[in-house]
Design a protein around this nucleic acid. Structure first.
Lengths: 404, 404
DNA sequence: GGTGATTTGTTGACTGACAAAACATATTAG
DNA sequence: CTAATATGTTTTGTCAGTCAACAAATCACC
């Protein structure tokens, strides 16, 4: 709909090069010319501008075994960071994340009770305030990204509903922006997990992927479609947890967090797994590892556990079938306890998927585990704050350092 | 990933302007400058190039009541056409469609039996051969678009499976291209319906929509995501007909065309509607109208019919709930007998949808009837052939006129 | 250890696309 | 008939990327 001009070309090319260095890590300049198809001299000028902007660095060439003049290596400037915030039911986690996805620091503020919006914002702001000296000394902060376990409106970062935190219409992005002085953006945690796995994890180089995460509070999802994160009109897309996988059932049926029965989230539940395995709260910290060990063959799971795993995998396969039929992704990435389920019996999931997915899209897809560990959401949330910078490196309006 | 340069700017701007005139119809040049944000002089030059290329025309200004010098009206050149082909179980339909979506001619070749791929290609080619004199006289043909009721691989137009036609791995695009001498492209019919409704029908100006069509052979769907048709890796996306909406049921349950029970297509069936309404084959031609009339209040449908409509609307609501939760579209467009179901009892569908969709995405969506009539698939298929031309007006490689 | 082939960096001239400004023209309002 | 307004037309300017020539750094081979 909109025309473009020379300025757009420059913006696009700066963005392309910074994006490559951001996602692929340090890259020789000669390789940038090959990847972009641009002229050597153009790439040299673009990189020079990024260095000038304080976004990239040029290092001495790496020692290689190749003929020809060595090419300097271009890397992101490590002083450019974003702040990531993840409020949960039992903690608020804050991190300082650099361009390139490097997590400089992660601070987990443990809570006695589920925080209100105001409390979560106050905690995040106090942690950020404590970091401020450090940040002002050596870093430039692009902004704050919030990963929220709930439905978040993309236009303004309003949390429409976060069932487990019991938040309704909580304008967390504007509250934290107001409190901290940094621009703040919020999105659904699983959607940000999808972005993180896509850039830095199991989904590298993939144009169409679906990410599904299973946690204590339910099942969330995110979509990368045609090489871009997909949110729909309001940013609420990716809620695979609430699609129907079974009959509504009788009065005793579990309900999902939206109060609906027969959905993926109501049938595939971590608590049910833990109870048949006899795992309790003592593994709160390393839950996924404990679960994996208990489900593995040498963990000798009992018949009840095997049956529950099979039941849950059947329902998961049905939901993945819907995702595969509707979205025809190249990859499905499973995180949290869904990854444990996958590892416990890949063949069973495959069989269940084959029962509900059409052959053609079924052949296109692979189902794999998430690769990123505890930094997943921090990296994803930072991506949210980096997006405007990556989209327009030269024209980015840096926030004034607050508190000075 | 790829850099851009001056050539890309020109291509993008030519494409933008031709696209506006194609989708919005004849447009004053001054409005083009406002819509694109480009300079007057630039738009003048771009339009002049499109006229030079034989893709657009400039007419005398329309009489308006506005102050200021009148602006010439830019329209598509009506001589630019694409051929559309739609093989079905009982006919092969061929049309000549102009830029702008105008259907010059539509020819329905009725068949006694379901055609094989070879037969369908032969029929299409013979109709095209008969048109050739006419085409060579006054038209330039961009190519052929095929709307196929089945799963079509986008990369090469291979029909992986068309259950009702009983085609498996049928390379229809390359066969017809070979036979006719025109470049040919194939895609799923419902996906093309989505594109047609998006450009010229109920979905105009919408960036995120889902289209669902109900026909005698089942339920197909198409997705427009983030302002572009979405096909997934292989082009198979949009198969909403095969997602689970109910329990698998007992032995007597209907199966969908993929042999799966409990799916949308197995529960929401035109034949079931027709049988409770006592409608038969005599309405083959104007089925949708007859259905609408029978379902309307003054058609006095019986209790059995009301119950069946309610049952089907319940299942349709469940499937739409999945679509709404996963894709968060702005619009859901229903075509074929699904439109009749919607009209019969909009409130019931709304209620069913509200039971399975989350509140936030539910509030974003409207469910409406398709607007395009019998030309829907012709316009959508033509869009497929026009796509390369619209994407790169100056660099488009026109096929040599075959047979001369 | 020199010499040539190869690859890439560097520099300056060149092309082309859009923007901007000045002027021309066609319409409406009074 | 005149002023105001909007837009077409023409000319000049700016800027991004390309291209070609040359320089520099490495490897391979004699």
């Amino acid at each position: 709909m909109h025309g473009s001009n020379n300025d757009d070309v420059r913006r696009h090319n700066l963005s392309t090069i910074l994006g490559i260095v951001h996602r692929n890590g340090a890259t020789p300049r000669s390789q940038l010319t090959r990847m972009t198809g641009l002229n050597r001299s153009t790439v040299a000028a673009l990189v020079a501008e990024l260095v000038e902007l304080g976004l990239a660095l040029e290092r001495e060439p790496d020692a290689t075994k190749q003929v020809g003049r060595p090419s300097p290596v271009v890397a992101v400037d490590p002083r450019v960071v974003a702040l990531a915030v993840n409020p949960e039911i039992d903690a608020v986690t804050i991190a300082v994340v650099g361009l390139g996805g490097h997590v400089h620091r992660r601070i987990r503020h443990v809570l006695e009770h589920s925080p209100s919006v105001t409390e979560a914002v106050a905690i995040a702001e106090s942690v950020i305030a404590a970091l401020r000296g450090e940040l002002d000394a050596g870093f430039r902060v692009a902004g704050i990204g919030l990963a929220v376990p709930g439905q978040v409106r993309s236009s303004d970062g309003m949390v429409r509903l976060a069932p487990h935190l019991d938040w309704v219409d909580a304008p967390i992005a504007s509250l934290l922006s107001e409190a901290s002085g940094y621009p703040a953006f919020a999105a659904n945690d699983a959607g940000l997990g999808a972005i993180a796995e896509w850039h830095f994890g199991a989904g590298r180089g993939c144009r169409d992927l679906v990410y599904l995460n299973g946690g204590a509070s339910g099942i969330g999802g995110g979509i990368i479609a045609a090489g871009a994160p997909f949110g729909g009109v309001g940013g609420f897309a990716g809620e695979f947890g609430h699609i129907r996988v079974s009959a509504v059932g009788d009065a005793g049926a579990h309900l999902d967090s939206a109060g609906i029965a027969g959905t993926l989230e109501s049938e595939v539940r971590l608590s049910a797994l833990l109870s048949v395995l006899g795992l309790g709260a003592e593994h709160a910290e390393d839950l996924d590892d404990a679960l994996l060990a208990a489900l593995a063959d040498d963990g000798a799971p009992g018949d009840a556990a095997r049956a529950e795993v099979a039941r849950q995998l059947g329902h998961l396969g049905t939901a993945l079938g819907a995702a595969v039929n509707v979205l025809n992704p190249e990859l499905v990435v499973l995180g949290g306890f869904l990854a444990s389920l996958l590892v416990a019996d890949p063949a069973a999931l495959d069989a269940a998927l084959s029962r509900s997915a059409l052959a053609a899209p079924r052949e296109d897809v692979s189902v794999v585990r998430a690769e990123l560990g505890p930094n997943l959401l921090m990296v994803g949330a930072a991506e949210l704050a980096f997006a405007p910078l990556l989209g327009n490196p030269a024209g980015f309006g840096w926030p004034a350092s607050p508190g000075r």
